Simulated assay, not measured.
Amino acid sequence: MSYTVTTPEQPTHALNHVDNWDGEGDILFSFAFMVDDDYYHFESGSPVLEYQGDVIINVWELK
């Protein structure tokens, strides 16, 4: 899948989130960046909240 967001040089946030891609509700930590109030994975540029059941638990801004 192709996304049209531009990935910054460094991640701007660290996220603790539920990734429900397979219905199992895996809890993960990821580096991310924000565009228009939406978070995207720093490594791939894909949206963090993509599947039903995806939830952001906690956010830390990286400075």
Rank of each mutant, 00 (worst) to 15 (best):
L49G: 02
D22E: 08
D36F: 05
D36C: 08
H17G: 11
S46R: 13
S44G: 09
E50P: 00
V55Q: 14
P8Q: 10
W60L: 15
T4L: 05
D54H: 10
V55R: 15
T7S: 04
E61Q: 13
P8D: 06
V48S: 03
G45K: 09
M1E: 11
T7A: 08
V55S: 05
Q52F: 13
E9C: 02
P11V: 10
I57K: 05
L15N: 01
D36K: 14
T6F: 01
D26N: 11
D38P: 01
N20T: 00
Q10E: 12
E9K: 14
G25P: 08
V48K: 05
N20W: 02
W60P: 00
Q52P: 00
D22R: 04
S44V: 00
V5A: 08
T4Y: 06
I27L: 14
F33Q: 03
Y3N: 10
S44T: 15
E43H: 14
I27C: 08
I56P: 05
P47H: 09
D36M: 06
T7H: 03
P11K: 12
S30Q: 09
V48P: 01
K63S: 12
D22H: 07
M34T: 12
W21K: 13
T4M: 04
E24T: 08
I57W: 00
G45V: 13
D38M: 05
A32Q: 07
T12V: 00
E50S: 09
T7W: 02
H17D: 06
A14H: 04
D36A: 13
V18S: 04
S44E: 09
